[in-house]
Design a binder for these strands. Structure first.
Length: 501
RNA sequence: GGUCCUGUAGCCGAGUGGCUAGGCAAAGCUCUGCAAAAGCUUCUACACCAGUUCGAAUCUGGUCGGGACCUCCA
């Protein structure tokens, strides 16, 4: 499409909106930091993966062939200074009496289950950390050979000071080395690291450690930044287009990735860094340390104490897209409930629109309305091109929903619009709503033809009752259906439609 | 403590110097046997104090509040 050269992305590296130009015309390499599968997927996971799902979808819409790599972190991470070294995979495994791989498999499946419900397209490559131990070791060897890492007691550390002498360090996080040295100096006790700012590339495994691999430095496991560098490099090359993830990964994770890859490849790995903001609950970031994590299972079932009701995955998706991805998103029942109603309205409008037909009649053209619709529709692309402003696209859709409803009720006659505008609306609205924003019906996809037959019967019975002014019966049909979640809607033209909760 | 972000009507939120964002809630009206749905109308806010400017929610400085990162985290 012609819009492919006008996409602007806020690059975290430069903190500015930049025109997106792929390294190879027509192709985009997209790397998204995936989940650590040592535990249940939660609401926090919804944000980045829905955000970058829309990015992926939009890039494809623009005609790009996207290689979308999203890793699964299934190797143990140890924690840095100031805390006891600890492997999340191993610890959780012991707790659940599972092999680390059983644990990883279990939660990977749970993650995929959630992503499917959110209607997220699958990444084209989904590499695991444990499946790329060899690549990680090779990369570490390379970094050592180039003199930017050293071994201590079977562990290997990256020499940040030396790196900073040769390359620009801290560009992404805006953290200078001096600043870091100052802030970490007193935290560091008797570390085997030469410098507090250094980070581990490989960690020697203590005897009780379950996940362990042979390496040139003895048995151990990889550090927590090297996997992304190794896998991104393997599948997307030494330099690729977009690397995305949560803002909490900015430092030290992504900063370290840049350092590792730069040493190995002699150039910065990523053209555009994208970072989504966090989801907060009562103004506080959701996180394990805050004890306010809402798992996807709880979210969809409404079983978390903070939840007043269950929320459909589509409602969550919609809610997330109503806010720009770089802003924090505060979670609350009231907001979610508002989203549910709003989404319902848009889904209804989208379905209605598909059924509308344009017939040239006698209506005089409404130039003002025509221009308005033209503008609202053409802004879809404009807004998406402006750093994926999904919130604005949705705002326009709400305005169009009113027009669509009016068309349906005959308040506006279809041919008040020009036929080109009408068909523009009819084609573009669903493309953006379904294909790009990835929003879809909340109804079960079960075959509803039998249910429809039953409902048509009830609608007919109610209609007969109404003719006889037997309102007790007609209201009973309506109210009992409503009680089981089916709402009858009397339309302007006397027809009756229905919708499900 | 260091680095950075942020403070918008009852709630959620867009906003990148001048022109009604949008949604939900609330109120009134139209339609309806009554409702619901739908449509129309109303509610016009930018933490505070200075400054720049013809003009600021938007830029600058300060004050107060909230948050993130510096530890695993999306």
């Amino acid at each position: 499409m012609s819009n492919s050269n006008t996409l602007y992305i806020t690059n975290s590296l430069t903190k500015t909106k930049e025109l997106f130009t792929p390294i190879t015309p027509g192709y985009v390499g997209l790397y998204v930091c995936g989940p650590t599968v040592s535990g249940e997927s939660h609401l926090g996971h919804a944000r980045p993966y829905i955000t970058y799902d829309v990015v992926n979808r939009y890039l494809q819409h623009l005609g790009y062939k996207v290689r979308y790599v999203r890793n699964i972190t299934d190797a143990g991470h140890f924690e840095e200074e100031g805390r006891e070294a600890e492997d999340k995979m191993a610890k959780k495994s012991a707790l659940e009496k599972l092999e680390p791989m059983e644990l990883a498999t279990k939660y990977s499946r749970r993650f995929h289950w959630g992503m499917k419900l959110f209607n997220c397209l699958e990444p084209t490559i989904e590499p695991t950390a444990t499946g790329h131990i060899v690549e990680q070791i090779e990369m570490i060897k390379d970094i050592m050979a180039k003199g930017f890492a050293y071994e201590k007691n079977g562990s290997v550390y990256f020499n940040v000071k030396k790196y900073a002498e040769n390359y620009a360090y801290g560009e992404l996080s805006g953290r200078g080395l001096d600043n870091l040295l100052e802030n970490t100096r007193n935290l560091d006790g008797q570390s085997e690291k030469e410098d507090a700012v250094d980070f581990a590339l490989w960690k020697a495994a203590p005897p009780e450690h379950i996940q362990r691999w042979a390496s040139p430095w003895g048995e151990g496991f990889p550090g927590w930044h090297i996997e992304c560098s190794a896998m991104a490099c393997k599948y997307l090359g030494a330099e690729f287009d977009i690397h995305a993830g949560g803002m909490d990964l900015l430092f030290p994770h992504h900063e370290s990735e840049i350092a590792q890859s730069t040493v190995v490849n002699g150039k910065a790995p990523v053209r555009y860094w994208m970072h989504n903001n966090m989801i907060t609950i009562d103004g506080k970031k959701m996180g394990k340390s805050y004890n306010n994590v809402i798992t996807l299972t709880d979210l969809f079932a409404g079983t978390h104490p903070i939840l007043q009701q269950a929320y459909h995955p589509m409602v969550v998706r919609f809610y997330i897209l109503q806010t720009h991805y770089r802003s924090t998103l505060d979670f609350g029942n009231e907001a979610l409930q508002a989203s549910e109603k709003g989404l319902r309205k848009l889904i209804g409008a989208n379905e209605l629109l598909k059924k509308l037909t344009f017939t040239e009649n006698i209506s005089t053209k409404n130039a003002e309305l025509d221009a308005k619709v033209q503008k609202l529709v053409s802004e879809f692309a404009e807004f998406m091109n402006d750093d994926f402003s999904t919130a604005k696209v949705l705002a326009n859709m709400f305005e169009l929903a009113t027009i669509i409803n009016s068309l349906k009720d005959g308040i506006i006659k279809a041919d008040e619009l020009s036929s080109t505008t009408f068909s523009l609306l009819q084609t573009q609205f669903p493309i953006y709503f379904e294909n790009i924003l990835g929003l879809q019906s909340m109804e079960d996809n079960a075959d509803n033809s039998k249910l429809d037959g039953v409902l048509q019967l009830l609608i007919a019975i109610r209609a007969e009752a109404k003719i006889k002014k037997d309102f007790a019966t007609s209201d009973k049909v309506r109210n009992e259906l409503l009680a089981v979640g089916i709402q009858l809607k009397d339309e302007k033209d006397g027809k009756v439609s229905y919708s499900f909760d």
